[in-house]
């Protein structure tokens, strides 16, 4: 029983991490329909920016996270402005954009290795506390991971529903063509979601830096999981991305309760496979297509 409880809490923590990754990626994907592969290395770079600022430069953590978010947002906007948009303007299909994004992925990941070195990096001297409730253990960083979802997701939800730019994002997610017709500047909205989505990834990036450290190749799994979580949850739904993230976290954790851990990498994909086959609109994607 205590194993079950521990796995449950692990699932929540892992799910919180995935949920934020999915929210950032999903925002970009649902609004622009661009499979932004380079989201992965941008997340990595965010982690390294947090490392440089919090580590060698000794900035306080919130400031480091802010710096990471700003760099990520800039990179996101750049990738849209100088790569994806020109391709779309030349009538390149989404698949072409995807491969171009892959090119960017390769470039950014290797640049990260060149600039920051190939080993892992951790924030020297940072030590989160260990806590336990009964048989269940967790760390301070784990708490932050959960809290970050609890703060960011409602804020984003309110922004999307209430604020003008947020409403524009939702309109474009719903129907880009229609949004253009009613006078929404879809290019501006796209830049906004690239900035927002990438900036959001800086939060899990900073927290994972504190938890496990950063390394140049951490981006691939991150963007992959984010993509999967978005589809599992339902494209175009904030609730769905969050649910998808938590679902993956839970599956990865509780799914291995009785199944050997050598299947860890594939178990979420088995679930994904079933979800898409049985409920192609995703867990929460009922309303939109």
């Amino acid at each position: 029983m205590s194993l079950f409880l521990q796995l449950f809490v692990n699932g929540l923590i892992g799910g919180a991490h995935y949920a934020l990754l999915a929210v950032g990626f999903g925002l970009i994907f649902a609004t622009t329909r661009i499979v932004h592969f380079a989201y992965g290395p941008i997340y990595t770079i965010a982690a390294y920016v947090a490392w440089v600022t919090a580590g060698p430069l000794h900035w306080p953590l919130p400031l480091a996270m802010l710096a990471a978010a700003m760099v990520a947002a800039l990179l996101g906007v750049f990738s849209y402005q100088f790569l994806y948009r020109p391709i779309e303007e030349r009538q390149g299909s989404t698949l072409v954009v995807l491969i171009a994004s892959l090119g960017l992925f390769i470039v950014l990941e290797n640049l990260t290795g060149i600039v920051f070195g190939t080993g892992g990096q951790t924030v020297a001297g940072f030590e989160g506390g260990i806590h336990f409730i009964g048989p269940v253990f967790f760390t301070t960083v784990n708490v932050w991971q959960i809290v970050s979802v609890l703060i960011l997701v409602p804020v984003l939800a309110v922004f999307l529903r209430r604020a003008r730019p947020g409403k524009a994002i939702l309109a474009m997610t719903d129907n880009a063509e229609m949004a253009r017709i009613v006078g929404i500047d879809t290019v501006k909205v796209s830049m906004l979601v690239f900035a927002l989505g990438s900036a959001i990834s800086a939060v899990p990036a900073t927290l994972i830096l504190l938890r496990d450290g950063a390394n140049p190749s951490m981006g691939f799994l991150a963007v992959f999981i984010a993509f999967v979580a978005v589809v599992v949850g339902g494209i175009g739904s904030l609730r769905g991305a969050v649910a998808g993230g938590f679902a993956l976290g839970m599956i990865e954790s509780l799914g291995l309760w009785q199944i050997p851990t050598e299947w860890q990498n594939s178990i979420s994909f088995v679930v994904l496979f079933l979800v898409v086959l049985l409920r192609p609109q995703g867990l929460f994607g009922a309303a939109r297509r």
Partner: peptide, 20 residues
Amino acid sequence: SETMAVGAANIDTQIAKIKA
């Protein structure tokens, strides 16, 4: 007897099972 992928991001499950 648990396994993990090289550079796996999440090994919490493995460790929890080992602990149990």
